[in-house]
Structures are given as structure tokens and as C-alpha cells.
Design a protein around this nucleic acid. Sequence first.
DNA 1: CTCCCGATAT
DNA 2: ATATCAGGAG
Length: 217
Amino acid sequence: MSNKWVSKQQRALEILIRLKRLYPDAGCTLNYDTPVQLLVATILSAQCTDERVNMVTPELFRRFPDAGAIANADIEVLENLVRSTGFYRNKAKNIRGACRMIANEFGGEVPKQMEKLLKLPGVARKTANVVLANAYGINQGVTVDTHVKRLTQRLGLTEYTDPIRIERDLIRMLPQEDWENWSIRLIYHGRAICQARKPNCQDCELRDLCPTSGNEE
DNA sequence: CTCCCGATAT
DNA sequence: ATATCAGGAG
């Protein structure tokens, strides 16, 4: 790695420029029609590919299109509909619990405040950030999922392993209007090139900016 | 820290 | 066989 990149922030900003060029059309890969549906899809996406989530949500949303419908659904029916996404008992309980709270306390709409979102069962910073950014265009934080965590560490932009602390580092380094741009493009890059098992550094356009490039052989 | 958990790639 | 997937709760 060249030593012309004196600070982590300078390197992060250059990486952001590259990512925008590499993935100009990157966007949320979960399918949904409403903020409630995005919230449900994001809860289902825990430790599961978006592709798999998109296989179960059409039937789920056809039968239970809004928060009120999911709130009143039979728990075993929900479990069977979401089973293939894994953690299906927790996920069924959480999406119903979240929809009950939304229907009863938030007028059937996903709240736009971080504090209220974090009260929903199955919703922590990562899910809240995804919903706020993609449904409402609100950049309240940086989404740190497994890909963002892994790539931020490999790129030497944080010393932490805790997603909350990693998010704090990224918030300091990046302009707020690019918080979601950063996350979604790192996720694309993590899926396509910098994979968990195989970093694929030979094909990586960020080689010269990455302190761990080439260490995977 | 452990547990939740099915589908898929390696 | 094992690691991993837009994590969260106890």
C-alpha cells in the first residue's frame, strides 16, 4: 500500500470514490413495497442472504400485506412462511411483535425516530439504519452488517470488532450524506470480490488502498 | 459469551 | 464437514 494516504479518513474518502465508480447503481437488494415490508424483510435478512429473503416475502406479503395483518397472524403460519430463512421461530415472533407495536403504538407506520425503532423486537442499530436510510432517506447512522464489518477491518479503517464501535469510527470518517452509499457499496464489494472465505485480492480495485491485500494466499 | 437455524458454497 | 449469509436477545 502506498504511503501517500496519510490518514485513515483520507483513505476512506478515496475508497468511497472508487466504490461509487465501481458500483454506480448499488441499492437495497431486498424487495418491498412499503416501509413496514422493508422492516420485516430486514429482520428476516439476519444471517441469511437477501436472495433467500426475496423468495419468501412475496407469499408472506401477499397473505399479510401490512402491520395490522401480520400483527393478527397465526404464529405457526408465520413460522412456516419464513422457515427457510433460518432462525424462523425468533424471526416469526419478532416480525409479529414488531408489527403489533407498530399497529398499536405507532398508527400502523414504521416510526422515523431511531429511539422508537430500537424498541421494536428484533430491531437493533443495523436494521434501524437500513430502514431509515432506504424507506425514509434518513442517514441516522452507518449500517454495519457482516460485510461492512469485515471489509472495514480488512481495509484497516478500524481496530474494533464491535459493530457499534465500528459504526462510530465510520461516522467520524465519512460525510453524512454518504453513510448509506458507503454501506451498500461495501456490501456489493463484499459479495462480489472481498468475500469472507476468499478475498480475491487479484480482482480487487482497492488493492493499493488496502493494508491486508495479498495476505489471503 | 451462547443461542437461535435453514440453505448454500467450498 | 464446515463456514457463511444486509443480526439480535438473553
